[in-house]
């Protein structure tokens, strides 16, 4: 049993309810024990930092301090939300890198009877623990309804693989973790060139035109590459691409229809869990057609391997083997 201190983050109870529900649905299969951090507070998203630095970091650090107190057979804090993950990680890192910041934050925490020593907990994202602790083999062994034929565009968004102070990800620009997780479910994964590009973040609120353009690029790229569905690991990305896709279409006079769901939702479905329980139906850009592709189609027959072709043109360099934090080397087929 892998145990984690769980920091859900505000959106899990609201806009990202599908994420929470699907996570709960697959948790038993993944033998994951989640112990919620008692009385956690909002991480401040990207907003508090713009207003006032010390309160912003103190707000985040209260969670770290609570987690450190609650350590109970584990010192790993798992956060499924990208912004939360980044804020927690950044606070932990900067408090150590700039001792002056650490001191000030602790001075503030002391006013609430708390203290946090940077480095006393590990902060990790859900995808990271699934890949590196639970392992793709376990995931594969739980698949009863492979997603054969479903063309998935893996979309990580920006804040998890970057800045990645703790070097937990295989790459900043084209990490392969989410791709490999989707492949383990049997999906056909497209090499999505914008997998870590920005969804617009809070610009949907304060500068919608900037955001619409970023959303359009992502949705257009996924469609151009022939994806049936995008999967994400970030509530903000899901919200922006799902809830604002309509507005984006209106703005540009386009007609995109690109459903985007959480990766946990596809895991749940592949594990044989009922789509409704996996949070399907909560998305505004319906994933019905994408679901139909796996629901209706019988698993495809094994295609015969094509005869080896004579090399044509100039040879390509071999891809650089990527390494997961756990030391596993990712094999490209």
């Amino acid at each position: 049993m892998n145990k984690y201190l769980f920091y859900p983050g505000c959106s899990m109870e609201g806009s990202a309810r599908a994420y929470y529900e699907s996570l709960k649905a697959i948790q038993p299969a993944l033998t994951m024990e989640l112990e919620e951090i008692e009385d956690w507070n909002c991480c401040g998203a990207t907003e508090y930092l713009s207003i006032n630095l010390i309160p912003a970091y103190s707000l985040i650090a209260r969670n770290l301090a609570l987690a450190a107190q609650q350590k109970n057979g584990t010192d790993t804090v798992m956060a499924p939300c990208s912004a939360c993950y980044l804020n927690l990680e950044k606070a932990d890192y900067y408090m150590a890198e700039r001792p002056a910041l650490g001191e000030k934050v602790n001075e503030a925490l002391a006013a609430g009877g708390l203290h946090y020593e940077p480095g006393s907990v590990q902060i990790r994202h859900l995808v990271d623990v699934i890949i590196n602790d639970i392992g793709l083999e376990t995931v594969k062994s739980k698949v009863v309804r492979p997603l054969t034929g479903l063309r998935v565009a893996p979309y990580l968004g920006c804040m998890v693989p970057r800045p990645d102070f703790a070097k937990r990800w295989s790459d900043h620009e084209h990490p392969s973790e989410l791709d490999d997780l989707m492949k383990a479910l049997g999906a056909e994964v497209i090499d999505f060139p914008m997998k870590t590009s920005c969804c617009g973040g809070h610009m949907t609120q304060i500068g919608p035109e900037t955001a619409y353009e970023l959303i359009r690029r992502l949705v257009a790229a996924a469609e151009e590459q022939g994806a049936d569905i995008m999967v994400t690991m970030c509530p903000m990305c899901q919200m922006n691409l799902d809830a604002y896709q309509g507005e984006t279409n209106r703005h540009f006079g386009t007609n995109y229809h690109m459903p985007i769901v959480f990766f946990t939702q596809l895991m749940a479905v592949a594990f044989g869990i009922d789509p409704k329980q996996a949070g399907f139906g909560l998305e505004l850009v319906s994933a019905k057609d994408a679901l139909a592709r796996i629901g209706l189609k019988a698993p495809e027959e094994q295609k015969p391997t094509p005869a080896r072709k004579k090399p044509e043109g100039l040879p390509m360099p071999k891809p650089l083997p990527k390494k997961y934090a756990s030391g596993q080397t990712v094999v490209e087929e």
Partner: peptide
């Protein structure tokens, strides 16, 4: 139900307020 009609509130709001009030008096 992707937006709640009423806000969630943490239990120990006093503690958080005390921390933030103190933090606002500090500068880096």
């Amino acid at each position: 139900k992707r937006m709640n009609l009423t806000p969630n509130r943490i239990k120990n709001m006093d503690q958080l307020t005390a921390i933030l009030e103190k933090a606002k008096t500090l500068e880096l």
